Amino acid sequence: MGRDDATDRHDAATWSPLDSDGWYAVRNATTALRDALIRAGLEKDFPYLRAELNAFGHGLVELGRVSPATAERLAELLRLALASGLQRLAESGDETTESREERG
Protein backbone atom coordinates (compact mmCIF):
# COMPACT_ATOMS: atom_id res chain seq x y z
CA MET A 1 0.00 0.00 0.00
CA GLY A 2 1.48 3.32 -1.06
CA ARG A 3 1.38 6.56 0.82
CA ASP A 4 -1.30 7.98 -1.50
CA ASP A 5 -3.61 5.04 -0.72
CA ALA A 6 -3.69 5.99 2.97
CA THR A 7 -4.77 9.56 2.21
CA ASP A 8 -7.69 8.37 0.08
CA ARG A 9 -9.27 6.45 2.95
CA HIS A 10 -11.76 8.00 5.36
CA ASP A 11 -10.51 7.90 8.94
CA ALA A 12 -11.54 9.34 12.29
CA ALA A 13 -9.07 12.18 11.99
CA THR A 14 -10.86 13.58 8.95
CA TRP A 15 -14.43 12.75 9.97
CA SER A 16 -16.83 15.66 10.14
CA PRO A 17 -20.39 15.76 11.48
CA LEU A 18 -21.34 17.38 8.19
CA ASP A 19 -20.58 14.02 6.53
CA SER A 20 -23.26 12.35 8.64
CA ASP A 21 -26.98 11.88 8.01
CA GLY A 22 -27.35 11.72 11.79
CA TRP A 23 -26.15 15.30 12.12
CA TYR A 24 -28.77 16.64 9.72
CA ALA A 25 -31.52 14.60 11.40
CA VAL A 26 -30.68 15.87 14.88
CA ARG A 27 -30.22 19.42 13.63
CA ASN A 28 -33.64 19.35 11.95
CA ALA A 29 -35.28 17.86 15.06
CA THR A 30 -33.68 20.52 17.26
CA THR A 31 -34.83 23.26 14.91
CA ALA A 32 -38.39 21.90 14.93
CA LEU A 33 -38.39 21.80 18.73
CA ARG A 34 -36.93 25.30 18.94
CA ASP A 35 -39.64 26.62 16.62
CA ALA A 36 -42.36 24.99 18.74
CA LEU A 37 -40.84 26.43 21.91
CA ILE A 38 -40.78 29.88 20.30
CA ARG A 39 -44.48 29.59 19.40
CA ALA A 40 -45.21 28.57 22.99
CA GLY A 41 -43.16 31.47 24.38
CA LEU A 42 -40.67 29.09 26.01
CA GLU A 43 -37.54 29.75 23.94
CA LYS A 44 -35.78 31.62 26.76
CA ASP A 45 -36.55 28.79 29.18
CA PHE A 46 -34.41 26.31 27.22
CA PRO A 47 -31.09 28.17 26.84
CA TYR A 48 -29.10 24.92 26.51
CA LEU A 49 -31.11 23.47 23.62
CA ARG A 50 -28.69 22.15 21.02
CA ALA A 51 -28.01 19.36 18.56
CA GLU A 52 -25.20 16.93 19.35
CA LEU A 53 -23.63 13.74 18.04
CA ASN A 54 -22.30 11.18 20.49
CA ALA A 55 -19.06 9.27 20.01
CA PHE A 56 -20.86 6.74 17.81
CA GLY A 57 -22.31 9.41 15.51
CA HIS A 58 -25.85 9.09 16.91
CA GLY A 59 -27.76 12.35 17.09
CA LEU A 60 -29.02 13.62 20.42
CA VAL A 61 -31.08 16.69 21.23
CA GLU A 62 -29.77 18.32 24.39
CA LEU A 63 -32.56 20.08 26.28
CA GLY A 64 -30.55 21.06 29.34
CA ARG A 65 -31.81 21.86 32.80
CA VAL A 66 -35.04 23.77 33.27
CA SER A 67 -36.80 25.25 36.25
CA PRO A 68 -39.74 23.46 37.88
CA ALA A 69 -42.05 26.18 36.53
CA THR A 70 -40.80 25.56 32.99
CA ALA A 71 -41.26 21.80 33.39
CA GLU A 72 -44.84 22.39 34.57
CA ARG A 73 -45.56 24.68 31.58
CA LEU A 74 -44.15 22.11 29.18
CA ALA A 75 -46.15 19.32 30.83
CA GLU A 76 -49.34 21.38 30.51
CA LEU A 77 -48.66 22.08 26.83
CA LEU A 78 -48.17 18.37 26.21
CA ARG A 79 -51.38 17.51 28.08
CA LEU A 80 -53.31 20.08 26.02
CA ALA A 81 -51.80 18.81 22.76
CA LEU A 82 -52.63 15.22 23.62
CA ALA A 83 -56.18 16.13 24.65
CA SER A 84 -56.64 18.13 21.46
CA GLY A 85 -55.36 15.26 19.34
CA LEU A 86 -57.64 12.75 21.04
CA GLN A 87 -60.60 15.11 20.66
CA ARG A 88 -59.90 15.51 16.93
CA LEU A 89 -59.66 11.74 16.54
CA ALA A 90 -62.99 11.25 18.28
CA GLU A 91 -64.65 13.95 16.17
CA SER A 92 -63.35 12.46 12.94
CA GLY A 93 -64.22 8.91 13.94
CA ASP A 94 -60.66 7.78 13.16
CA GLU A 95 -59.86 5.97 16.37
CA THR A 96 -56.71 3.96 16.60
CA THR A 97 -56.79 0.39 17.82
CA GLU A 98 -54.84 1.47 20.91
CA SER A 99 -57.40 4.08 21.97
CA ARG A 100 -60.24 1.55 21.62
CA GLU A 101 -58.30 -1.00 23.64
CA GLU A 102 -57.49 1.52 26.40
CA ARG A 103 -61.19 2.14 27.00
CA GLY A 104 -61.77 -1.59 27.17
Results as ranks from 00 to 15, higher is better:
His58Ala: 12
Arg79Phe: 10
Ala25Asn: 04
Arg88Trp: 07
Arg88Lys: 13
Gly59Pro: 10
Thr14Gln: 11
Pro47Asp: 07
Ile38Met: 04
Trp23Leu: 04
Glu98Pro: 00
Asp8Tyr: 04
Gly2Arg: 07
Ala69Ile: 02
Glu101Met: 14
Thr31Trp: 08
Leu53Asp: 09
Leu77Ala: 08
Leu18His: 08
Leu86His: 09
Thr70Tyr: 05
Phe46Lys: 01
Leu82Arg: 14
Leu63Arg: 01
Asp21Arg: 05
Leu18Pro: 00
Tyr24His: 11
Leu60His: 13
Ser16Lys: 13
Ala55Pro: 00
Asn28Cys: 06
Tyr48Thr: 12
Gly104Gln: 11
Leu42Cys: 03
Ala75Gln: 07
Thr30Lys: 05
Thr96Arg: 12
Leu89His: 04
Gly41His: 02
Thr70Asn: 03
Ala90Arg: 13
Leu37Met: 12
Glu98Ser: 09
Thr70Val: 10
Ala71Pro: 00
Ala75Ser: 09
Thr97Arg: 10
Leu37Lys: 06
Asp19Tyr: 11
Gly41Lys: 00
Arg27Pro: 01
Thr97Lys: 08
Ala36Cys: 05
Ala55Glu: 14
Glu72Ile: 00
Arg73Asn: 10
Arg34Ser: 15
Glu98His: 09
Gln87His: 10
Gly41Ala: 01
Arg27Asp: 15
Leu49Glu: 07
Ala71Asp: 12
Ser20Asp: 15
Leu89Phe: 02
Ala36Glu: 15
Leu53Cys: 10
Asp8Pro: 01
Arg65Tyr: 06
Pro17Asp: 11
Arg100Val: 08
Arg73Ser: 14
Leu53Met: 12
Gly104His: 07
Ser20Phe: 06
Asn28Arg: 12
Glu98Asn: 04
Pro47Cys: 09
